[in-house]
Design a protein around this nucleic acid. Sequence first.
DNA 1: GCGGCCAGCCTGTCAGACAATATTCCCGGC
DNA 2: GCCGGGAATATTGTCTGACAGGCTGGCCGC
Lengths: 238, 238
Amino acid sequence: MEAVEQSMTDDAALRVVPKPMRKLVEEGLRNAIVTGRFSPGQHLPDRMLCELFGASRSVVREAVRLLEAEGLITTIPNRGPFVSFLSAAEAVQVYEVRGVLEALAGEGFAIRASDAERAELRQIYEQLARMPPDADREALLGIKQNFYEVLLRGCRNPLVARMLESIINRNTRLRATSLSDPGRLAHTVAEIRRVVEAIEARDPEGAWEACRFHVRRAAAVALRILREREEAAALARE
Amino acid sequence: MEAVEQSMTDDAALRVVPKPMRKLVEEGLRNAIVTGRFSPGQHLPDRMLCELFGASRSVVREAVRLLEAEGLITTIPNRGPFVSFLSAAEAVQVYEVRGVLEALAGEGFAIRASDAERAELRQIYEQLARMPPDADREALLGIKQNFYEVLLRGCRNPLVARMLESIINRNTRLRATSLSDPGRLAHTVAEIRRVVEAIEARDPEGAWEACRFHVRRAAAVALRILREREEAAALARE
DNA sequence: GCGGCCAGCCTGTCAGACAATATTCCCGGC
DNA sequence: GCCGGGAATATTGTCTGACAGGCTGGCCGC
């Protein structure tokens, strides 16, 4: 019988082994897209990716396929992979899903996180609250990424963590611009405070609501910006 | 400038082209796992998959990678891909996520589905309600798959549809056994009726609640079965 | 100036190769 | 007879090279 015991995943997790090439390419490419080094609509011919990462086509193609499944890349048959656009319609969907998953994560954190994790979250919140209103967008984004990292770790639900992470990757660029929208920071801080307070009070329902509220607000700002942009682009085309 | 216009996705969708090999392999493999033709823990050496699907290693490996990302396959470094187990702990996570995504889909359906789609859903419900209490588990599963297909189409949120589909794939086998749990069918029918009625009343909140309730109930039954199984397995090992 | 044609590029797929690692199983020692 | 070690085998992870077919862009003729 060639079955394997439950310990599969444990073994895999414990094993310390140099990351396989394909993972490096995957991460590098994801990073390049999420941080905007490759811009939406850009063509990514595999020859280029091969020499960029020093990997072979097979490895590059596996990585591209994965990012395609995550929605970061759109492949046109016989034309190859392109960095995905995020249309306003798609952004609506992204925010809907992000809303419920983030709420679930917040709820789980309120129930299951350790005291140390609660403290970490509070600390990151304090850091955010201290930022000046005209702070650098990348700095803000970095702090919020930390916030999510702790949240996803503490919610004790790796599945939610993975799905939410992928969703967030998809709209990181948009978040960066909406985070630095004038006047948005103060609201963000207030919304995050509600989340942190509910979590400290070990109030799952409160955390759920606070998270959903935060995402809804963020969505409103982001969609306004995105629609303005799309209108401007439509006008420019005429 | 080698950027591409928004129409990217439309073009890709409209184009009618023979499905690429890699998609065929992906679907075939996913199907084999979901329907249980490959059982959890089974090793899937790529040579075997190559000759099973008549494809080359590169194509097979891309497909395996994708199913790994979906959670259907677990890869152990230097050992290769295995059909994933679904532990009770993971099942809890799956049901948590499925609950909120399904609720979101139900809500969206109540808001945005067409009259024809509402009628379709009602029809599938009637079909389910007519099933005898000792109905075949595969038949029940088939009807519920149809239900989800309509639900996911009508909720007008392809992102939710895709994520929920992948989540549901992951626990199809478990659902099959819990669907045919004695006495469960009557509850299932009643729960689905609440969903359908809320949708017909164009009551998004009601649909949300009905969906969440349904998943919670399904989760309770499935987890009971799964834990019994795990205990039995633990005893058998001694 | 315009439309069609041709060359070149890129994708999608295959086959084969090779090092590194896991597993199997046989054989010798106790 | 049993156990441990090590060779033989299998499999993964990756690379290279190849080739058909579709797409693009530029050139040529009109």
